[in-house]
Design a protein around this nucleic acid. Structure first.
Lengths: 218, 218
DNA sequence: TCCCTTTCTCGTACGCTGTACTGAAAATAG
DNA sequence: CTATTTTCAGTACAGCGTACGAGAAAGGGA
């Protein structure tokens, strides 16, 4: 068996090299030629292992999902969802290109499905129906991606957006913005745990309520 | 005054043509050369009106923000935030490339600041401090973008991801996923209003609570 | 009127991208 | 050995963003 010339590399080597590149220099540095030279191959040889670049990105996303530690399902949905969200955030902080690569990407591999499975298990005690659970999971994932994106972007404020904002504040057209920016002193830092707690608790508690419009009768 | 050769076009024409292209054929169709031929100019002439393509995307994002109808601030934060979220969603559905163009894009123009200003005004009755308000607004915006992205992606399910999921379900490794997908019958549709209501109500009510860890003592 | 300065136009060109094509190389099967 | 099958990788092509620079078109000053 195994006829024909044996492969000099593996698909995993290609994906790993791509991830290493993205981690070090960002998604834009991930090009077919760069990856090829990185693993010591000709550019076109990569197409033996990967159909095209878009699928390569799918594989990258799924591969980094392997790093996620297995979360123990305690049975308390709040604890479990928080742990899952924290794991997702850690993954995105370790691979800052992930939030950018995630949208418009299809559900791609078993690792992503595994995350979905765990989230469904965490939501089991709520007694919600399947579609609602799925919706909640998508929402929480979106929250985390959005939070981390802001977190990364806020770490490197551009000088020009500072100029835009200060000019806007000085113009007087944005009074609420001006006061919001000047009221700096606050007690607690808006840590991820605090905000994620709001989102998860608020979202699920709202969803659990028997009828959506019963807020006043309780 | 007005020395030198007069411009044959305007920056607005360039941005409008780019938006028209993105609406019709997606973000990938927005190239300098395409826009140039669209408005009957040489490719390099665009650089008179726009410094580079990245700034052009900034301008596109800010320009479509002009379409947002002015929301009346009623003073009830729930009503106002829901109206703002609905307006955002309508904008994204009208310009499906918007959610994809939005992330890693800096706060860019007065329309975006105007949206921020209105959101801050809507959150005024909550009595929250400035940074927390900002955080909540970013979260709600991220939620809407995430929801619309899913909404658009779900409208066109790929045959291969269907195959992946059915195979995964058949493998038996994902029991919760299997039951979640099979439990189809539910009463209410997960409409945007329902889900956005959960997110906004849950999020703000959680944020308003005096101390984050007082959930058990109330 | 002629010329200078300023501004916009746009053809050419460079380096980069993803990838189709093609023939050589390297393995096994007979 | 030859035939078959598979991978390797060089070449090539269309397309991208955009740097450069020559020409065109306006106003201002002589």
């Amino acid at each position: 068996m195994a006829r024909g010339r044996p492969p000099a590399h593996t698909r995993e080597q290609v994906v790993d090299a791509a991830i290493r590149l993205a981690d070090a220099e960002g998604l834009a540095a991930v090009t077919i030629r760069r990856i090829a030279t990185e693993i010591g191959a000709g550019a076109m040889s990569l197409y033996t292992y990967v159909p095209d670049k878009d699928r390569l990105l799918d594989l990258m996303v799924d591969k980094v999902g392997e790093e996620t530690p297995k979360i123990n399902i305690t049975g308390d949905w709040r604890t479990d969802l928080m742990a899952l969200a924290a794991a997702q955030r850690a993954l995105m902080l370790a691979h800052p290109w992930l939030p950018a690569a995630l949208p418009n990407r299809r559900l791609t591999g078993r690792n992503m499905l595994g995350y979905l499975e765990q989230s469904l298990a965490a939501l089991e005690p709520t007694g919600l129906d399947g579609p609602t659970k799925m919706e909640l999971i998508a929402l929480v994932t979106g929250f985390v991606a959005s939070y981390v994106t802001n977190e990364i972007a806020a770490a490197t404020p551009t000088s020009e957006q500072v100029a835009l904002i200060t000019e806007a504040v000085a113009s007087g057209d944005f009074p609420h913005l001006a006061t919001a920016l000047s009221s700096g002193a606050r007690g607690t830092e808006p840590s991820f745990e605090r905000i994620a707690g709001w989102a998860i608790t608020g979202l699920v508690e709202q969803a659990i309520r028997p009828k959506p419009s019963d807020r006043s009768s309780s």
